[in-house]
Nucleic acid binder design. Structure first.
Lengths: 216, 216
DNA sequence: ACCTGAACACCGTTCAAGT
DNA sequence: ACCTGAACACCGTTCAAGT
C-alpha cells in the first residue's frame, strides 16, 4: 500500500498530499461536506480520481486529514476572566465560537466521528482552566464532559442548515397547531417564534459551569 | 440472511402507501438510515424502484413519512414526581429514553431536520410540566429549549455508532498522548477511560432544570 | 514512484410507455 | 390509476496498465 500516514520527502510529481488536503478543505469550507466528492476533488486538482487514492487514500482518509489540518491551524484563543467559573466559561465560549467559524468542517468532523480531533486544542484549554479551578481526576473529567456536551447540544441547533426542513414540519409550524389546555397559550406562541440562541447558550452553559466548578 | 431481506417476486399490484412506509421503517430500525435506499426498499416490496415515487415520493418524503409514523406510535409516557423540578426532569428523561429506544430513526430524523416531528408528543409532555411548574411565555420557552438542547447534547454522544471512529482518533487515544503540565495527570488519565453517560446525564440535566424551574 | 482508463457496483430520480 | 424498463447523472473504489 502507498505511504498514506508517513510523509514522503524523497521526490514527488506534480501533485502532492498537501495540495490534495488543502483543496479538499477549501471545497468543504465553501460548499459543505456533500460537495466533497472524490471526483470533484480530482477535477479541481486537474487529475484523475484514482490519483487521490495514491496520495491520501479514500474519502474517509481525506476527511480525517482535512480535519487534522484545520485543527493545526486553529489558533489557540486566549482565555479571559478573573475567577475559575469565568475562565471556564470563556474556554467553553471558544469551543462554540470556533465551531461557528467553520460550520461545514465541524459538521463533517462530527459525521465521521472526528470531533475530538478537531477540538482537541480547545478542549485542552478547557482542561487547563478546570485544573486551575481546583478540580482533579474524575471530578474534572465529569465537568469537562458535561460542559462540552452542553456546548455540543447548542452546536447541533446552531449548525443545522436553516432550510433543511420544509415549512410544514418546522418546530414553529408544528407548535402553531398544538392546542393543549394544559399548556399556557403564551408559551405556545413563544415556541412558534424565532429563538435567540446566544443568550440561551450563555445562561444554560453558565448553569452547567456553575454546578460543576466551585465558586470563587 | 433473514426472510425479510429477500424480495418478493410473487406480487401483483396492491402496493399501498402504508406498506411502503412500514417497510421503510423496518429497514431503518434494522440497519440504520444508510440502509434505506429506494432500490433496497423497492426490492423488499417486490416492486420497481419508481413505484415508490408514485405512492409516497422520493427518499426525503419516505423519511418524513416514516418519522411521522413512529411519532404516532410513540406512546406518551407518564410523567412521575411530586414537585415541579422532579416532574420536568422526568419528562426530560422520557425524551432521552425514547430516542435511545429508536436510535436509528432518531438519527435519521435529525439528519433530515425532522427531530421536532418525532419528538413532538414528548415535547408537549415537557411543556405541560413546565406550565404546571408556573412558567409562562418566553420564560417557559427558554426553559423548554434549554432542557431539550441539553438532552440533545447527550443524545449526540449516546447515538454515535461506537465503531465510527478508528482507534488512532478516538478521544481516549488523543488524550492519552497529551502531556500538559497545566493539566492534572489524574484528569488526563480519567479522560482516557470510558465515560459512564447516564449519571452524567442525570447530574447535568438536573443542573439545567434546577436553574430554569423554580424550586418547590 | 506516480498517474490514468476502464470498469464495477452502487446511488436517486425521471420519463415515456404499458396495462 | 398504477406500475415498469430504460436511461440519466451521479457516487466511491479497484485494478491492470502505462510512464
Amino acid at each position: 500500500m502507498p505511504p498514506h500516514s508517513e510523509p514522503n520527502p524523497s521526490r514527488r510529481g506534480e501533485l502532492d498530499r498537501n495540495e490534495v488536503i488543502d483543496t479538499a478543505l477549501q471545497l468543504v469550507e465553501a460548499g459543505g461536506g456533500e460537495s466533497l466528492t472524490m471526483r470533484k476533488l480530482a477535477a479541481e486538482l486537474g487529475v484523475a480520481p484514482n490519483s487521490i487514492y495514491w496520495h491520501v487514500g479514500g474519502r474517509h482518509e481525506v476527511i480525517i486529514a482535512l480535519v487534522e489540518r484545520l485543527a493545526e491551524r486553529q489558533a489557540e484563543a486566549t482565555v479571559t476572566g478573573t475567577n475559575g467559573r469565568e475562565r471556564v466559561m470563556s474556554a467553553a465560549r471558544h469551543v462554540w465560537a470556533a465551531a461557528l467559524t467553520h460550520p461545514h468542517v465541524t459538521t463533517l468532523a462530527y459525521e465521521v466521528g472526528a470531533t475530538s480531533l478537531l477540538e482537541l486544542p480547545l478542549e485542552r484549554a478547557l482542561a487547563r482552566e478546570i485544573t486551575a479551578a481546583g478540580l482533579k481526576g474524575d471530578e474534572a473529567r465529569d465537568a469537562m464532559r458535561a460542559i462540552l456536551i452542553s456546548v455540543g447540544g447548542f452546536l447541533v441547533i446552531a449548525l443545522r442548515p436553516p432550510d433543511l426542513v420544509p415549512e410544514p414540519w418546522t418546530s414553529a409550524t408544528l407548535w402553531a397547531e398544538v392546542d393543549d389546555p394544559l399548556i399556557d397559550p403564551a408559551t405556545i406562541d413563544s415556541l412558534t417564534r424565532q429563538l435567540d440562541l446566544p443568550p440561551l447558550f450563555e445562561r444554560t452553559v453558565r448553569a452547567v459551569v456553575d454546578s460543576y466548578i466551585p465558586g470563587p
